[in-house]
Design a protein around this nucleic acid. Structure first.
Length: 203
DNA sequence: ACCGGGATGTTCT
DNA sequence: GAACATCCCGGTG
């Protein structure tokens, strides 16, 4: 652990397959305060959104399976990684039921470990709150991109996993509509830890 | 602090 | 050809 890192119990258990097996709306608020890890770099999940499969007009799985959204239709507990706006990667945890293609977008982290590595990757960042305060920022800070699409979080495939270090989710997480979508704004499927300075910038 | 616009290219219609 | 689950920078107040 490097200086500046917050305490991280590296021996904490990984989330089980069953944790992801319910749909994204059930799983998303329970992912708050869990720890996303890639190698020696880690952050606490403080902001998430649920995308609910082929019926959800905001989801990349809307309508049918395509080459891009294939991982969402697979078993829960894997990563779905997508490329957007010509330069950014974002990551989801695929949820159940298998074939339903629901997934939770990870939108912000509180940096916990490997901050030196995050600063190296996030060359534009000027403050610690610039490191992981958005879905593309945190993917860059953790070094996650297209080659991680489909990685199994339960087995820590390719070094990526989510841990439960014993910090419970907030009793009353804050909610809002999803950010950056056109269709489907009416669903209150964004959850976040209120007051955390590492939340994504609002508009 | 807030706001507006440009970057950049894959994906799907 | 349009849309895009975003970010960054430079303007103004």
């Amino acid at each position: 652990m490097q200086s500046g890192d917050k305490a991280l119990a590296v021996s904490s258990p990984r989330l089980s397959r069953e944790f992801y097996a319910p749909d994204a709306v059930e799983v998303a608020p329970r992912l708050l305060n869990k720890v996303l890890v890639h190698g020696e770099v880690a952050g606490r999940i403080i902001e998430v959104e649920a995308y609910m499969g082929p019926q959800d007009p905001a989801s990349h799985a809307y309508g049918k399976m395509t080459q891009r959204n294939r991982a969402m239709f697979g078993p829960p507990g894997h990563l779905y990684v997508y490329f957007t706006y010509g330069m950014h990667w974002c990551i989801n945890a695929v949820c159940g039921p298998e074939g339903f293609a629901s997934a939770v977008l990870i939108r912000a982290l509180e940096p916990l470990a490997g901050l030196e590595r995050m600063w190296e990757r996030r060359t534009r960042a000027r403050k610690e709150t610039d490191l992981c305060s958005g879905p593309a920022k945190l993917s860059q800070a953790l070094g996650l991109e297209g080659s991680f699409d489909g990685a199994d979080l339960v087995s820590a495939d390719r070094g990526v996993t989510i841990l439960d270090d014993g910090v419970p989710p907030p009793l009353r997480p804050a909610t809002s509509g999803r950010i950056g979508v056109r269709a489907g704004k009416q669903y209150p499927w964004r959850w976040f830890v209120p007051g955390n300075p590492h939340l994504s910038r609002s508009r």
